[in-house]
Design a binder for these strands. Sequence first.
DNA 1: CGGCAATTCGAACGTTCGTTCGAACAGAGT
DNA 2: ACTCTGTTCGAACGAACGTTCGAATTGCCG
Lengths: 220, 220
Amino acid sequence: MASPSTTSRLSARRHRAPAAPETRYDRRLAEIIGHATEVFCKKGYEGASMRDLSRESGMSLAGLYYYFESKERLLYLIQKHTFTTIVQRLKARLEGVTDSEERIRIFILNHLEYFLANQAAMKVLSHEAEVLKNGFASEVAAIKREYYRICVGLLDNFKSEHDLQFSTRIAVLSLFGMMNWIYTWHNPRVDADAVSISGEMSDIFLLGVMANAKKGRNGR
Amino acid sequence: MASPSTTSRLSARRHRAPAAPETRYDRRLAEIIGHATEVFCKKGYEGASMRDLSRESGMSLAGLYYYFESKERLLYLIQKHTFTTIVQRLKARLEGVTDSEERIRIFILNHLEYFLANQAAMKVLSHEAEVLKNGFASEVAAIKREYYRICVGLLDNFKSEHDLQFSTRIAVLSLFGMMNWIYTWHNPRVDADAVSISGEMSDIFLLGVMANAKKGRNGR
DNA sequence: CGGCAATTCGAACGTTCGTTCGAACAGAGT
DNA sequence: ACTCTGTTCGAACGAACGTTCGAATTGCCG
């Protein structure tokens, strides 16, 4: 009775456990999530059917429901895991770096590196950002807001250190646009790697905001 | 017998006709396209059902099929019309302007102005760019390629005139990212108008690519 | 007003959708 | 060998999907 697939299924210790006590259940779920990510990426969330997911992952249609209670929750799991991971990695990389320009370059590099290494997951995160509802939506939105806030913080530091004057909101959102749009065009056989693209985008963005009108002593 | 809804339905004169000889059919179709655009924008192409379109436009489910032969063709009509219009307007605005920087500023302004004035249609164009198949897809892709090429041309001119050195491809695609991402964040009650945003983005982008390494006489 | 074409619609078609249920299977411990 | 728990599956559910068809309605020209 009672399928797991709610978070209560995860044994209470986890978190803090040094050697991952990864259960069979966890491993299988991760596999399914991986296949589902590919399918959602290729056909879109609404366009992908549970039967598509079943075929791709090699598990029967009914069998999938042992691991999650609905298609929507599966999308939620993908988005939450992807977003959490990228924020985590960013924080680790920022640790110890104090130069405000370097911190922004790290933000951009982290984003693009993860994006290109996990294209399918990041496309699902970017492209299906509006389909979750209610509880699912707000949890992912919270992580997104945190990520956005970090970037705003980095840029505000940079701005005041260099005595610059521009709209942080527009600048940050332009930067996200530059970076996230990459899923529509990046072709690994034609385009350079993340480090190189990240360098070019960082140059355009940073020099772009730096070259902008410096703040005079007397404001406007 | 035989529903119209193929292009053959449009009376042959059109194009060149000074006073629009707009038929009742044309007007009704345009209305439906307008309503469909809103629905596709709100629920996504796959997420929107023909019954949703029927409800929104006030026409019966079967009645819709008098105006177009499939849901896919309806999306095609929306995308083709939107894209054609924005290219048309751009060409008109560029006419007579020779300064290469000003031409890029016009490109950006034209894009954002049209985007914000037709948010729903532009979101459907951006967000549902991959769902059309075969013939429908390739026709829209052709316009997209033309639009992209125009931008590459503008930037290449700017680049050689100012003796700059950067990847045109990455720069153009970054610019498109900045601009197109706007549908995910723009809020008319919070954000400035197209002219102002266009100015900020143009500054970031143009100063960004200008400040980049100038080409030395001896290359690398 | 009569008649013909353009337009609209209710009802139904066959298919596919997300989800459920109870039975079958697997493996480990006694 | 038997049982118990965790895992998988075939078959089916009702709902919703895109599309079709023939009849009804409308608008227009004589």
